[in-house]
Amino acid sequence: MNLYATSLLLAVATTVWPVGPPRPEILRGWEPPPGPYAAGHRGLDLAAPPGTAVRAPAPATVTFAGPVAGHGVLTLTLTGTGLPPLRTTYGPVEPLVRVGTVVRTGDIVARVAPDGDHCEVSCLHWGLLRGETYLNPLGLLGGGPSRLLPVWGRAPE
């Protein structure tokens, strides 16, 4: 099953943005690198002031909650998403849950931590992986591949 088929199945299961409502501003989008060690942006940066509640986008189990390179990070392994399962990552955060905790869609799992290193303004970095492959987190919300409209007008009905 490809990424978009998987993401659409998960989107049907009712997923939510990790911060908001309202829908957060995307400060920096997903820019997949050409190789595993190349430059790129392996997630989305969502505008969120320090202290903002971070919610589980779908049913999951907490599989990591702690510091990485001096910043708080949280990883959720999403329930029923195949093998290897999808994992979402969040940082910088102050985790509010422990490893092994089972969470439901919308449960508060962390708070955005103050951090001046990642974005020009306070943000939450939201990542998505299957195994070691980074994916676009918008796929969880039904944001599959883009469709361009013809330059001369509307798409045919």
Rank of each mutant, 00 (worst) to 15 (best):
L124C: 04
A69K: 01
W126A: 00
G131S: 12
L76E: 00
G51R: 15
V109L: 09
G80P: 12
G106L: 10
R98T: 13
T133Q: 13
I108H: 07
T101L: 15
R147C: 01
P137D: 00
R98F: 05
D107T: 10
E94M: 05
V121A: 15
D107L: 04
G131V: 10
G100W: 00
R98Y: 09
A48M: 12
R130W: 02
G127R: 13
P49C: 14
V99L: 03
A65N: 13
G142C: 01
P114G: 08
A69S: 11
L46A: 06
P95S: 01
G51V: 13
I108T: 15
D117T: 14
A113G: 14
G100Q: 01
A58N: 00
V121I: 15
T77W: 02
W126N: 04
L128K: 03
V54T: 10
V121D: 13
A113F: 02
L96Q: 11
G144Y: 04
A113N: 11
E132D: 14
G131D: 15
T81G: 00
P49R: 15
V73A: 10
G80M: 04
R87I: 03
A47V: 04
A113V: 05
V54K: 03
V97H: 04
V73W: 12
L140I: 07
I108W: 08
L129E: 09
D115G: 09
T81H: 03
P92A: 05
G70E: 11
P95C: 01
P137W: 13
L96S: 09
